[in-house]
Computed example of a mutant assay.
Amino acid sequence: MNKIILHKNKEKAAWQLHPWIFSGAIKTVEGKPANGSTVKVFNTDKEFIAYGIYNAQSRVAVRLLEWNQEHPIDEQWWRNRVRRAVELRTPLLTDQNNAVRLIFAEADFLPGLIVDKYGDFLSVQIHSSGVEVVKMIIVDELVQLLQPKGIYERSDLNARQHEGLSDVNGLLYGDMPAEFVDVIENGIRYQINIVEGQKSGFYCDQRDNRWLTAQYVKDRHVLDCFCYSGGFTLNAFKAGASSVVSVDSSALAIETLNRNIMLNGFNSIIHTAVQADVNKYLRQLGEEGRKFDVIILDPPKYAPSRSALDKAARAYKDLNRRALLLLESGGLLATFSCSGAMDIDTFKQVLAWAALDAGKEIQFIRHFNQPEDHPIRASFPEGEYLKGLLVRVL
């Protein structure tokens, strides 16, 4: 097997089970490993550290998989890892929830692999060359474990370009998903689009936060921004909100939202669906003097990397400032960031600046986090990307 020798003093993170080796940490490459092939990683004293996947094109040149030299990376290793990840999620699959993330990349020792279960179908994303090599082994194991109606691949991520991989969308197994697939989350029914929807089709990571936020909306007027297919809106309906305004820039999102409202029989609730740019719409609401009791902000990723953090912080601040201006004393803002580069302390500071600019005094009364099917591996803190705050205006 090809070997990777690290520079002196560059092995500490690897010894501590961090799964990434950056190209600058590599002293020598013994052999000619192909992109996606398995390699052994050693320190300068030739002590074995771990097995990993090599890719010369990627800044993350080696993605570490296994630290026990007695457990080589063969077909059974991949099957065992897939099986273990799925087993850990089994308790989450109930008659009230059948949309679950089954495999969460590095958190499950399967870097570059995402698998989501949506009812009878699985959606797969692959963004590392090593997983690409064993893709059909993983598919076969998923079929044996879950017997899905179909497995659809949505590997159309920017990360694949850094791995030298082209985008791939298509059926991997079984039946092609229908235009809309039925799922249930928190006892609420959804029809989602796996083939053309955002990401892999649905955002399972907000499951708990949708339910938690809904505990504060009974008999209140709610504004749900970046509503997508209606997760926060529908939970608010179920919890007894007086009215909801849902906003998204996507026509498909608004269409899907309205379908999901009808699907659950919530059409008697006072509801307005608006296709608009959220920032512009918030400004318009402010000019009209509109007020709400609860506002939800669940924007897309503003900071894809640390280099974009300053610009993203300004965007988050302006967005939250506009929302705070629409809340009276006692009003609540449930605000989120899915940018991994934005840690919770920085996010709190951004909210403090937004409140200052809006002339509001605020309190942080709850933290929101990732659900348990999106675990954070202790040796890989970068896996913690979703955070949120429930803010009360004084």
Rank of each mutant, 00 (worst) to 15 (best):
I5Q: 09
K8N: 10
Q16Y: 10
L17N: 13
F22A: 07
S23H: 09
T28A: 13
E30H: 01
V39K: 09
T44G: 00
K46C: 02
E47W: 04
A50Y: 03
S58M: 10
V60R: 05
A61E: 04
L65A: 08
N68A: 10
W78D: 07
N80S: 14
R84V: 14
V86E: 14
V86G: 14
Q96N: 13
N97W: 03
D116C: 00
F121I: 04
S123Q: 05
G130R: 06
V131Q: 04
E132S: 05
K135Q: 15
I138F: 01
I138T: 00
V143N: 12
I151K: 06
Y152H: 05
V168Q: 13
G174M: 05
P177R: 12
E179C: 04
V181D: 01
E185H: 05
E185W: 09
Q191T: 10
I194K: 06
V195C: 14
S200G: 08
Q206N: 02
R210A: 06
K218D: 00
R220D: 05
H221E: 15
F226R: 02
A236D: 08
A239P: 08
V247D: 00
D248K: 06
S249N: 07
L257T: 13
N264I: 01
T272V: 14
A273L: 13
V278C: 06
Q284S: 05
L285F: 03
L285N: 03
K291D: 12
F292P: 14
F292G: 12
D293Y: 01
Y302P: 02
P304V: 09
D318N: 13
L319E: 12
L325T: 03
L326F: 09
L326D: 12
S329K: 15
S337Q: 13
L351E: 07
G359R: 05
E361N: 03
N369M: 12
R377Y: 14
V391T: 11
